[in-house]
Amino acid sequence: MKITDLRDHLCQVYPDLCPLFSIEFGDGVLAVPCGNLFDAASDLRDLGFDRLGMVTAVDQAEEFELVYRLQSRSMLAGIFLKCSVPRENPRVKSLVDLWPAALWQEREVFDLFGIVFDGHPDLRRIMLPEDWEGHPLRKDYRDERMIRRPDYI
């Protein structure tokens, strides 16, 4: 399905989501407030996006941008779902109830970014040892064991 057709389809079924939709680098992006993330994801799942491809986050200085990639087998299309959570006490509702695929992926985001997913049944560190301090993919992460690569190499 072409990205413009996807936009039209989305606007037809969920008019309230329509203004949040944009196209970047040929991909559809739906940017929602984090409070509505679960509902928007649920709507998209009903629309036919049956696969949760990727869950990740980006450290945007003041806030964390959560990025979900959804994929539809029936429409042969992909879409990004994005929301921004504040840096202080980042919390967002877990999508495990919609897709069990989020189970490990949200654990990874929790481990590396420290974003708490409410309603996640098993939110523990997954990559790093359990006694690790800090969340390394944050831009302000400091570790004395980490050697900064000099610019001239």
Partner: peptide
Amino acid sequence: LSAEEAVAWG
């Protein structure tokens, strides 16, 4: 692994 589970689990 059933087809539905395969899709839901990504």
